[in-house]
């Protein structure tokens, strides 16, 4: 009798759409994964496609100048060690965040640039989300444009990917929403007039028209966390880097578009 009641109740709940499917089943199948680009209007796509209309390319030009600028007490530029970024940085952004043996954990591209500054240039870190770090990151990432995302396979990284996935699946904030509730379950719908999208990380740093500037993946993540009215993480926080790691593993094989334009 109890069993019958339970079956009746659960079928009623399912009919009413109240019972959530198990989280693991809601992940987007690989064949249905789409870049944010595919959700954009033809005008915005055209802006990204033409290097002379894509405002992100200004960051690439400025980043190239910074790549060659000597700095720090070692008086070295990025180019002094890494030479031509077109060769040495090709494919790098496609596998970041990557494992740092000294720190024993993941570092994203911005953090790698600042680690390089500290370890090899003896220079002060560039502040997060400010012009110089964004431009330099954009220049480095642009060298991998068109290449498929190939996450760093280091075994030591896998627990951090799992932590990022947990955070992605974890409901938080006053709206009590997890990333997955929008970006896995409802990516094909709209919030007001804006496409929800799948939350793919394949164009960062992006030139976001809403920001009127370049911005990092962490800025975008912080936007969403504010949106669900949860307590935010600081730039460079381990939680955000873990989330970046999971997002990159979720976008495996998708071509990098940096500098992407987004509405």
């Amino acid at each position: 009798m109890k069993v019958v009641a339970a079956i009746v109740l659960s079928s009623l709940l399912i009919a009413a759409g109240i019972v959530l499917r198990p989280l693991i089943a809601t992940e987007i199948p690989a064949s249905e994964r789409r870049s944010g680009y595919t959700f954009m209007s033809p005008d915005t796509k055209a802006m990204q496609d033409d290097d002379t209309t894509n405002p992100g390319m200004l960051g690439v030009i400025e980043g190239e100048a910074l790549w060659n600028r000597k700095g720090g007490s070692a008086d070295k530029s990025c180019a002094d060690c890494h030479h031509d970024a077109k060769v040495s940085m090709k494919g790098v952004a496609a596998r970041y965040p990557s494992y740092d043996k000294v720190l024993g954990g993941p570092v994203n591209l911005e953090q790698r640039i600042n680690l390089c500054r500290a370890r090899h240039q003896q220079a002060d870190p560039l502040p997060y989300e400010k012009h110089d770090l964004l431009a330099l990151t954009t220049y480095v990432a642009e060298q991998s444009r068109g290449m498929p995302i190939t996450p760093d396979p280091t075994p030591e990284l896998q627990p951090f990917v799992a932590k990022g996935r947990d955070l992605f699946m974890h409901r938080q904030g006053q709206l009590n929403l997890a990333c997955t509730n929008c970006h896995d379950d409802n990516w094909d719908k709209h919030l007001a007039s804006s496409a929800v999208t799948q939350g793919m990380p394949n164009g960062y740093p992006i030139y976001r028209l809403d920001w009127q500037s370049l911005g990092s993946l962490q800025r975008r993540l912080r936007n969403c966390i504010t949106g669900v009215r949860a307590q935010n993480y600081d730039y460079g926080a381990p939680e955000l880097v873990e989330l970046e790691l999971y997002l990159m593993s979720r976008a495996r094989g998708m071509p990098l578009e940096t500098p992407a334009v987004r509405p």
């Binding site: 033409d50 290097d51 002379t52 209309t53 390319m57 200004l58 030009i61 400025e62 100048a65 910074l66 012009h131 431009a135």
Partner: peptide, 8 residues
């Protein structure tokens, strides 16, 4: 620092 992109 500034940059300009020209298409002619």
């Amino acid at each position: 620092m500034t940059a300009a992109l020209i298409n002619v």
